[in-house]
Write a protein that binds this DNA or RNA. Sequence first.
DNA 1: CACGCCTCTGTGAACGTTCACAGGCATGAG
DNA 2: CTCATGCCTGTGAACGTTCACAGAGGCGTG
Lengths: 340, 340
Amino acid sequence: MTPSPGRKKRATILDVATVAGISRGTVSRVLNGEPYVSDEARAAVNKAIKEVGYVPNMAARNLVRQRSQAVGLLIHEPHALFLEDPNIGSIMLGANTVLSQAGYQMVCLIIDSELDVNRIGQYLNGGSIDGAIVISASENDPITELIEQLAMASAFVGLPPNHRPLPFVSIDNKKAAAEITARLKASGRTQIGMIASALGRAAGADRLAGFADAMGSSYRPEHVAKVEHFSFDAGITGMRELLESCPTIDAVFAASDAVAAGALSVLQRIGRRVPEDIAIVGFDDSVWAQRTNPPLSTVRQPASELGAQAAELVLAQLRGEEINRDGVYLETTIVWRESA
Amino acid sequence: MTPSPGRKKRATILDVATVAGISRGTVSRVLNGEPYVSDEARAAVNKAIKEVGYVPNMAARNLVRQRSQAVGLLIHEPHALFLEDPNIGSIMLGANTVLSQAGYQMVCLIIDSELDVNRIGQYLNGGSIDGAIVISASENDPITELIEQLAMASAFVGLPPNHRPLPFVSIDNKKAAAEITARLKASGRTQIGMIASALGRAAGADRLAGFADAMGSSYRPEHVAKVEHFSFDAGITGMRELLESCPTIDAVFAASDAVAAGALSVLQRIGRRVPEDIAIVGFDDSVWAQRTNPPLSTVRQPASELGAQAAELVLAQLRGEEINRDGVYLETTIVWRESA
DNA sequence: CACGCCTCTGTGAACGTTCACAGGCATGAG
DNA sequence: CTCATGCCTGTGAACGTTCACAGAGGCGTG
């Protein structure tokens, strides 16, 4: 009687032990590269492992070790935005490289509905991962609360919502926004507007704050269009709004490259020349920036480095080290291309 | 003596049981929503769970149940490509929705280096996931071999490499390519070329085959530029090549939208008008397609549906159902915009 | 009253590891 | 010769669940 037509029963450490003619303990020692194992035993174990096709059972290992050697990357991003955000991919790869080298498995978890929120809660606290990197959590995020309650090893990419005192890696959005706005002013433009996005998030609000700072006394509220997301479509909406409230505008700071690309498409459709008639700058230095026509002047954000540092931050906590509670800020640079 | 300043010890099912004044078994029954539990017991358990802050330990559960209620989404894509591929995000979301509703956790695993390959092997076979959805595996992929050996529940998005007889969901690349090429011919163009990409993958090779099919006797090898990836930069390279080998070309079928966008940028730089002087069509109907100027005519690929169906395929296997061994093909449609 | 059935509960045995401990066997020093 | 030391090995207990089983009590029926 065969047990079932499905997957065959997996070999355990005991099978390896009996085939190799030794005990569990020694097999375990070989598996974990511990010292005090004779060469013969080691060879016998390795041979037996191949023979029976043994692979360690993670669940059993995690259970007894009380850790999983895995770190979660939580992506809590509205549907559409996730598809457009060019930074997420870079952040993922940056984090993966660091975790991978440290022997950790990175597992990405997408939070896309209420259903997900509960299940992820279990996943977080159920011992499936030892730490979490959180990307783009919005204000009042239940996951953030959970992480804080559990006091689990974590790192946010961008500021943690609600000013929670949690570890993070970010860029200084306000400073960067102020810098590129200043540059725009210095280039001789006089009617400078902004398309501000995602004001519910620190990144969005800070970019607007930086713009206002740099404009100083020449700041005009009617020169700011406020849109919901960092998206191409939001850029279209925002640009139309801006043209209506201030037809003589001659420069626009868009809160992201995607927004800038949307704005650019509006300007081109109505025949305004960029940069001759109107200058436009973005933020992120994503693929958008280099592939619009003209290519965008923008703020370069070290996305993969953000991911990498967030991963380091989590690893440090797992090693039990004290970490910098004030967060890590990475440098941005201005990339000047032809759109301004 | 406090045990350690780190995370406090987690409550177990036994703690809940003692607080509620009943046994493990009943707590377990409540947890899993089984019948034959008195209302009082249920209430007591729920109260106790809140009180001690209990969360089930997944490792222990997975160990005894021999399954994890999680499905992996393996992304094996060269670094740069992962960032550009517009379909991956949609596939992820499509799969996540289906899995989430079925009570499964989707975990994405990125394979970006040799290091990753080994670790993922363990992850796959170590009981951390019950099934796998594989995106864009290239020929001779060790992960594919592993999945076949393990006979684990799986589904490929796109054809499995090396013609392995594994479940998959795909579009008919050859047919779709032939259709759009035919449409290009019908529009009166006479010198039609193609920028063929990623010929090492079924998707890439099939698109070229479809093109050749549709061209029939008017197929000219020198009208085909072969490039490595489905990327913007590859589009630039390919277009330059094509212009050199055939300066009078008046239509180009690019193997993907990103490639088409790259090609378009070359044409615009040298002053060829699209679509007046030369027509260009892409493949995917990704964000690229709608945001180039002019927007691209292209083949619409139901990316999120691909992810969803792949998820369904895995779930069916986990339910023990027999599945269609010949794969599932989804329909594509031609989207005609202004670039041709 | 005896019996069977249904509801509910508790208990022991697993699941596959790791870890601490105990102990065996050489080897070398006193 | 004895004892300590270093290398190597085996064993029992634990990790936190689920699952099958046994059994208690209530109720209706013959």
